[in-house]
């Protein structure tokens, strides 16, 4: 099987890769680039644990072929910090106690980041609607909603 050449910008770094044509973005990130923050929990797009940003928009990386994103920018949880400082969302997730087992956390934060990218001041209802894209099995979501609210306030 012939490989496919792609150039992607991952967390502000231009990367050239030769990937399998049937390789998912999640595989590329985890297996080739050792970016294991995005998690594989269902592999079928049902849970959101593998969410990353594709040109600023949250996507399920388990449903995307890497050849599809040639030329695109990808942001993963590992790329969220700026100048060594945590993103307000990361801070708020810690401070509000929105993290338990942590397996959904990176996907949840990336979904929230996507929301704040397109809506700087989301209402509580908008936050709930947006993070209803992701499954969390530990927290009951309450502290996650509070953390996103807190982060959007901080960023305002």
């Amino acid at each position: 099987m012939k490989t496919v050449k792609v150039t992607i910008n991952v967390n502000n770094e231009k990367i050239k890769l030769q990937v399998k044509p049937y390789e998912t973005l999640l595989e590329t990130l985890r297996e080739r680039l050792a970016l294991t923050g995005a998690k594989e929990a269902c592999s079928l797009g049902s849970c959101g644990s593998c969410t990353v940003l594709l040109n600023g928009t949250p996507v399920r990386s388990c449903l995307i072929l890497t050849p599809e994103v040639d030329g695109a920018s990808i942001t993963t949880i590992e790329g969220l910090k700026e100048d060594g400082k945590l993103h307000p969302l990361q801070e708020a997730f810690m401070e509000k106690g929105a993290v338990q087992c942590g397996f959904c956390t990176s996907g949840m934060i990336m979904t929230a980041k996507g929301l704040l990218n397109r809506n700087k001041k989301p209402s509580r209802a908008e936050i709930i609607k947006s993070i209803s894209s992701n499954i969390c099995r530990c927290t009951g979501y309450k502290k996650i909603v509070e953390a996103v609210e807190e982060a959007s306030k901080k960023m305002a």
Binding site: L86, G102, S106, I109
Partner: peptide, 19 residues
């Protein structure tokens, strides 16, 4: 208090078995 394990978990650096 902020949980001691949460920094690794919000930055994606916390390793799980499949990682």
């Amino acid at each position: 208090v902020v949980r001691s394990d949460s920094y690794a978990k919000v930055t994606g650096s916390a390793l799980y078995t499949a990682d």
